[in-house]
């Protein structure tokens, strides 16, 4: 199971990569494996400002649909629109080309609430 050291994680199986006041967000290797073939990533909250834990989009696999929860409060400033044509990138490269959104987060203290790679590893029991 791939759990990169340079990311933070959530119990909802999302990864967060912090760069200054911007965070890049996607779903973990574990999550893409559980979902199976991903066929659609829908994000209709671009440019919106949302609270932590609010739904910012949806990821659909052939068999299931799963909501995406914002790990930090902030404004959605970018969506990886290459996923519209190639959603399978989430399966093949969840931490790279399969990233989903970038946000400008509004409360840096929330970053400390995110899970470390070790803590996330424990949650998924790997």
């Amino acid at each position: 199971m791939n759990i990169p050291q340079d990311c933070k994680y959530t119990k909802d199986h999302e990864w967060v990569k912090i760069d200054g006041d911007t965070a890049t967000i996607g779903i973990t290797d574990f999550a893409q494996g559980e979902l199976g073939d991903i066929v659609y990533v829908e994000v209709d909250t671009l440019d919106e400002t949302l609270e932590r834990e609010e739904v910012f989009g949806t990821v659909e696999a052939v068999k299931t649909v799963s909501d995406l929860y914002l790990p930090l409060s902030g404004e959605i400033v970018a969506f990886n629109d290459s996923l519209e044509d190639e959603p399978e990138k989430v399966n093949s490269d969840p931490y790279g080309e399969g990233w989903m959104v970038k946000i400008k987060f509004s409360d840096a203290s929330q970053v400390e609430d995110l899970l470390t790679p070790e803590a996330y590893k424990e949650i998924i029991g790997s």
Binding site: G36, D37, V39, V62, K63, N91
Partner: peptide
């Protein structure tokens, strides 16, 4: 068994 390699 629900899937092996992937449904597609």
């Amino acid at each position: 068994p629900i899937s092996y390699e992937g449904v597609n």
